[in-house]
């Protein structure tokens, strides 16, 4: 069945769409009450975030927009040290979208929410004119356990910089699908709760955390360097990039440091905890290819450097422009 403007009218078609697709998949006592607002228990220090998801194609190897919309918001909460608890979701659906596709997205969201340990407590649906596109906004709420403080501004000279696995897989998977390049690259789209929590549970002194989404690792580490007024240096050989992604980047002239990930994060930890952090990440779900990639060094504040394979140094600036495939 195709979605029509009638599904956005607020009448019978709307309520059928909601109950058949969304309520059925997201079922829980709070949502099932169908009140105007979710009323939920909670106490302590709140973390709140929101994110909107726009991706072409809607389904890609390793994930879909539904899984993406849960992971993105859950991971943002995790990066502030919070334990994610509740999500809301808003769907903006263009007429012409297939209800079967919506059903798949909703199922995928529900599964990912279960995996991440969050409850979808509120939702909204709108239908607009268009050509079958779907856009999802999710907001998330979590609670920060007492005593935890992580911030991009807390990196100190000597700290170790880790990344939780292979770079660029989401970006490469989506771009391959769009450009018709055949490979087995799958999006890394995943909720990172287990990896992040295990760092804290094992007593790693974590100073800064951020998921390396749009703009990639280079963007996140430039943000750290700017917020902390420090200089970060990476070792080129230590950057984890799979052979297929490396080949893919070569074809299109892309740099994996700038490519988006949906299930990877950068962690800046106390130097003495670097080995422990690495072991913990490697043992966690989605973390087997984690690596220590560099450290905070003396140098010009706000700068990200790479030590290259020939022993040279280059500055890795923020991303300018859209990171288009390069031919010349």
């Amino acid at each position: 069945m195709k979605i029509t403007m009638a599904h956005g009218s607020g009448g019978k078609a709307t309520s059928e769409l909601i109950s058949r697709i969304f309520a059925a998949n997201f079922k829980n006592p709070v949502l099932s009450a169908m009140e105007d607002a979710a009323v939920v228990p909670g106490a302590g220090t709140l973390a709140v975030t929101t994110d909107s998801f726009v991706v072409t194609p809607l389904f890609f190897p390793g994930g879909d927009i539904g899984r993406l919309s849960v992971c993105g918001t859950v991971n943002d909460l995790l990066m502030s040290g919070a334990v994610p608890q509740y999500l809301t979701c808003g769907f903006i659906i263009e007429e012409g979208a297939e209800s079967d596709d919506l059903e798949r997205m909703a199922r995928s969201m529900a599964e990912t929410a279960r995996e991440a340990g969050v409850t979808i407590v509120a939702g909204d649906t709108k239908v607009v004119e268009g050509g079958g596109g779907v856009y999802i906004n999710t907001s998330g709420v979590g609670f920060v356990p007492p005593g935890r403080r992580v911030s991009a501004s807390l990196c100190r000279e000597g700290d170790a910089v880790l990344v939780s696995g292979y770079l660029g897989e989401h970006h490469a998977a989506v771009l391959s699908a769009r450009m018709g390049i055949e490979n087995r690259i799958r999006s890394d789209c995943a909720p990172l709760g287990e990896a992040v929590e295990s760092l804290f549970q094992n007593g790693v002194r974590v100073h800064a955390l951020r998921d390396a989404t749009r703009g990639g690792l280079a963007t996140v580490l430039n943000e750290f360097a700017a917020a902390s007024g420090c200089c970060i240096a990476l070792r080129e050989e230590s950057l984890p990039v799979s052979a297929p992604v490396s080949g893919f980047c070569g074809i299109l002239g892309l740099d994996p440091l700038y490519m988006g990930n949906e299930g990877k994060f950068a962690a800046v930890v106390d130097r003495e905890d670097a080995e422990k952090a690495l072991a913990v990440l490697k043992a966690s779900q989605y973390g087997e290819n984690a690596a220590v990639v560099g450290s905070v060094v003396p140098g010009e504040a706000g700068t990200l450097l790479v030590r290259t394979s020939i022993g040279g140094t280059r500055i890795v600036p923020e991303l300018y422009g859209e990171g288009l495939p390069r031919i010349c």
Partner: peptide, 10 residues
């Protein structure tokens, strides 16, 4: 030609 670049077919 179908050309392979480290697992990418073009």
């Amino acid at each position: 030609a179908e050309v392979d670049f480290s697992g990418n077919r073009v």
